[in-house]
């Protein structure tokens, strides 16, 4: 077995995902099967090779750089427009630090 229910709960915690007990059982089985398949990667020798960190091969090193000029942002009102809860120009969340 590649992954236990306890590990599933630990990973869910890292991912900030609340799972039901049924989901934990189901994901344990699913992830186990998938992780067993992932083991196939160990059959291939890669010690001589670099990881493929980017897709564009022939781009210049500076291809992703642009002149640093300011441009207008979204603005406060639009940025907050989809917030489930906002007020006084801020996103509102449950209390973090008790007074």
């Amino acid at each position: 077995m590649k992954i236990t229910e306890e590990q599933v709960r630990y990973v869910a915690d890292l991912a900030n995902l609340k799972l039901t007990d049924d989901e934990v059982r189901k994901f344990q089985a699913d992830l186990d099967e998938i992780l067993v398949h992932f083991d196939r990667l160990n059959e291939i020798e890669t010690s001589q090779f670099d990881p493929m960190a980017q897709v564009l091969y022939e781009a210049e090193e500076t291809a992703t750089l642009r002149p640093d000029r300011d441009r207008p942002g979204l603005g406060n009102e639009l940025a907050l427009a989809n917030a489930p809860l906002a007020g006084s120009g801020y996103f509102k969340v449950p209390e973090v630090i008790k007074r």
């Binding site: 599933v8 890292l14 991912a15 900030n16 995902l17 609340k18 989901e23 994901f27 699913d30």
Partner: peptide
């Protein structure tokens, strides 16, 4: 709030992939 929102909001396949990716 984070955990409940994501637990209630995402469907099964997204959860599965988030779990796999986090792992």
């Amino acid at each position: 709030m984070y955990r409940n929102t994501r637990g209630e909001g995402f469907g099964a396949e997204c959860k599965r992939r988030i779990m796999l990716g986090t792992y």
